[in-house]
Design a protein around this nucleic acid. Structure first.
Lengths: 349, 349
DNA sequence: TTAATTTAAGCAATCGATTGCAAAAAATAA
DNA sequence: TTATTTTTTGCAATCGATTGCTTAAATTAA
């Protein structure tokens, strides 16, 4: 597994009795090289099966054309879709993507970040972990002058760009939708309040209640994680209340699913008695027999835009870092779990 | 975004009035360096916030500690889980993963492969695209002496290791399960026969029929893709037959889902009238109200084992390439869509 | 105290490609 | 034909870390 007898520009230069500098220039279409030699070099390079060593080039030029992406887990529909978006936008520009998972642990996140910086990547995309409170490890990235773009889960640091969903609006829209479906006792299954995104969804929820003059009831707010069980537990808790909710707005699809399963187990009809709205538009929400209304976060788009922000940033060569904060509009995908109107129309089944 | 005033070993050597060689050795725990100087260097390095430039190191040592992974799409539960497995196994060894998508196009696959080779990765993991027939671009990897490990979708090339599922057995088990549930007219929704995995599943299906003395009926075999619609279409076609099937074994979960939706639309009871078995154990199969029986491919495990095979391969320094073919056992996850027994027991709902 | 041996540290080449500056070659003008 | 300008090409340094070989320093033996 060693001694890869790689062809270098020196091999080509020796064969043609010219200097390596000329070979390099010829291959890079430097105008100072005559057409004849260029063609000769290119032809010979092909014949000798020459492959440029991007490592050496990177060392000399100071750029690797690699970018790093750090997410909590890559096998989550949302994150892998964002990565796909980034990849599709960046590949045409010659970039490659190196991925790392933080496993929602800030320590691992810091390690991964450090390792990526060592590797001399040209930029970093990241969605912070739930446990990320301190920002020291992230500030180190900035000290290195490495462009950083947050997506979805950001931390507010001056001069750092980000692409996020308008979670406040999303919370508002979801709640408003439920209100318009005739619900008034709307419970909210919130995510970890440590994360800005969940705070915003919660705030949007409260604002909608206020705008429609519905009293906010703190008992209707339950904190859940992204496990199905926590959604079931939430229903268990809520149904101990005097006044049971008539709608659930969950900040996550898995909790929404758990809630629905528990509701069904209790023979509570969805959406007739209780409407349910989830968040993330995970693939399964669509495929259920009773498809779940959910908030789409347009992950592909998010990835592409994050990539564009990065590209702009590296283009602005000498410029001061331009902070760019992109906020994407959420899109509520209304499905049966909260669609009473549809039910009345097509009362087939 | 330029002039990253990076600290190098030369900066450290200047500050301490020693040579860069000594600094390098000290940082690498070379025994030829005295304890005093080692400590001094390490301490100073930390103070100066020195970060090793892995690019320069890689250039010198001829290894980058980067490996490439090429999959059709990364935002598919199966593939992203395999990648996660590879990542978890390789990160402790200091490796990083660079990913690329082929979009199921052999041309893109070849480009990605080429780009990765340029980047000087230390190895490649790949799952070939559906359109991959020629293997020229893959043989180039071998010429470069770069370790290659196929996972799931492989191509038979001598001396190349692979980690795959025992698809033949999987096909057999799934079919046998259906037979034992009392089904005898078992249809098979097959994937693209160009891929070995689908051929094997099909063969396993046929063998099970044979072993249980059920006549193979070619009319019961329909080729589908991984779209829900093709599963619906398949039912449409099958239900035009004189003798309708009483079971569906789909080589993919999405087609299975489509089939179930179409069956339900036709008021055909699952599993009473028709049993359904899918393949891949996509997350949604579990979350359905009528959960779908599916074949688990243990993707995390597959990724980890592929990584182990790679690690062994690079460890065997001078050895001839050792071809290693790992075949993982499939695991049938039996759920309601094919579980008539359960139905009789707990006839609650 | 001097010679022999061990230990620590430095010199300089190397990995492969790039690029400013200088030199050579070719083309043009005088 | 010679001087001048323009094109081409080459020299050598550079990016940052590593390592074989050599030299210097420290330690031990004589």
């Amino acid at each position: 597994m060693k001694s890869k007898d790689k062809v270098t520009i020196y091999d080509i230069s020796k064969k043609l009795n010219i200097s390596a500098a000329t070979v390099s220039r010829a291959l890079n279409n430097n105008p100072k090289i005559s057409e004849k030699t260029r063609e000769l070099v290119v032809k010979t390079a092909r014949e000798m099966n020459y492959k440029q060593n991007r490592l050496a080039q990177a060392l000399k030029q100071g750029r690797t054309n690699n970018v790093g992406v750090i997410v909590p887990y890559i096998n989550r529909s949302f994150f892998s879709s964002v990565i796909r978006g980034i990849e599709e936008e960046l590949t045409p520009h010659g970039y490659h993507i190196i991925i790392g998972q933080s496993h929602e642990e800030v320590e691992i996140e810091a390690e991964q970040l450090n390792a990526l910086l060592n590797t001399q990547i040209d930029g970093i995309f990241m969605s912070v972990s739930k446990t990320t409170q301190k920002t020291d490890h992230i500030k180190k990235v900035l000290e290195e002058q490495t462009p950083l773009v947050f997506f979805d889960r950001k931390i507010d640091i001056p001069s750092v760009s980000s692409v996020v969903l308008d979670d406040y609006k999303a919370g508002y829209i979801a709640t408003e939708h439920l209100i318009k479906e005739g619900c008034s006792r709307i419970a909210h299954l919130s995510g970890d309040i440590n994360l800005e995104i969940y705070r915003n969804r919660f705030e949007g929820y409260k604002k909608a209640l206020k705008d429609y003059e519905i009293d906010f009831n703190p008992e209707y707010v339950i904190q859940v994680n992204s496990k199905i069980e926590s959604g079931m537990q939430a229903i268990d808790d809520l149904w101990k209340l005097e006044e049971k909710p008539d709608a659930i707005f969950s900040a996550g699809d898995y909790a929404a699913l758990g809630a629905m399963q528990e509701l069904r187990a209790r023979k509570i009809k969805i959406p007739q008695e209780v409407c349910v709205v989830g968040f993330s538009n995970e693939p399964f929400t669509k495929y259920m027999e009773l498809p779940i209304t959910s908030m789409d976060q347009t992950p592909l788009m998010m990835g592409k835009i994050a990539a564009q922000v990065f590209l702009e940033q590296v283009k602005e060569t000498n410029a001061y870092t331009v902070e760019k904060k992109v906020v994407l509009p959420p899109e509520l995908i209304i499905r049966d779990s909260s669609n009473r109107k549809l039910l009345k129309l097509s009362d087939v089944s």
